[in-house]
Design a protein around this nucleic acid. Structure first.
Lengths: 143, 143
DNA sequence: ACGTATAGTTTGTTGTACGAATCAATCTAG
DNA sequence: CTAGATTGATTCGTACAACAAACTATACGT
């Protein structure tokens, strides 16, 4: 992932950055007794119930993998399946109260940790970082 | 991971970015019949043999987890353990010829995919992205 | 109504990751 | 120089993650 002497290549910097974010995410998850995947799922549900199909797409997970993940999150009482009224095959995954609590806490913590790291950057640098990464993300969205 | 309506927050952009890099990494790995973890290990060994201790630290993995990962990579003939001459407890993990081939190919592919995405950015934007992410990585290194 | 497509689950397998216990080599006091 | 602590790595048991293929049930088009 690092390796192969990339001093200031774009890819190198981005890969290191991804690794870093990943680590933060893992640590935060662990602090809340969640796996990174479970925390990620919770965060994805913060804005409201989502169907399995959409989850599968945004998480890049096979439907079968997702079933298990949701099973475990449900077994812990953090979310629940509710049958979709329009389509009786489909279901929506919604956070429980406990799930909302945990999701918000995790989300908040991740943000805090990232912001803490960035605290030493000048606000100009922060702006640049935001705009350039956002621009990059934008490119990817159209793929 | 996304969720919670962060329009242009720093953390939000970085998390999305990490997710994106992660996805690229997964796809490339899969194309070479590797898991992301295995590919990451291979890339880490490109610059030469590394000991278990250092690997464990840079990968953020418990020693016991690493043992299994190296086992599987070794079973596929991509790397080999060699006892350290100075410390007979320790061992160095070195790529085999086949491992070198695969590692380089994977590494190259990841870079290519990232660069392809960034190709549409103006060179000024690329420069900004590089310098700002590198600066951020630099901050984290001192943690 | 029939066939096809879609949404999710089940099943079986491989890989990932941890912690606790273990083992051997090394280091360090005394 | 040896007893005890430390360090580097493996083993074992367990839980989770991820996939593919096969399957169930609902929805939809003609």
């Amino acid at each position: 992932m690092t390796g192969a002497s990339e001093g200031a290549t774009l890819a190198g910097a981005l890969v290191r950055l991804a690794h870093l974010v990943q680590r933060i995410f893992s640590e935060v998850s662990r602090n809340h007794d969640l796996t990174p995947q479970q925390a990620q799922l919770l965060c994805l549900l913060i804005d409201g119930p989502v169907g399995m199909g959409e989850l599968s797409r945004t998480l890049n997970l096979e439907k079968s993998s997702l079933t298990g993940l949701v099973d475990r999150i449900e077994r812990r009482g953090l979310a629940a399946r509710t049958r979709d009224s329009c389509d009786r095959r489909a279901c929506q995954i919604a956070l429980t109260d406990e799930g909302i609590r945990l999701a918000n806490k995790s989300h908040r913590d991740v943000i805090a940790r990232v912001e803490a790291l960035a605290a030493e950057l000048s606000s100009a640098d922060r702006e640049m970082l935001i705009s350039s990464t956002a621009k990059f993300d934008g490119l990817a969205a159209r793929t």
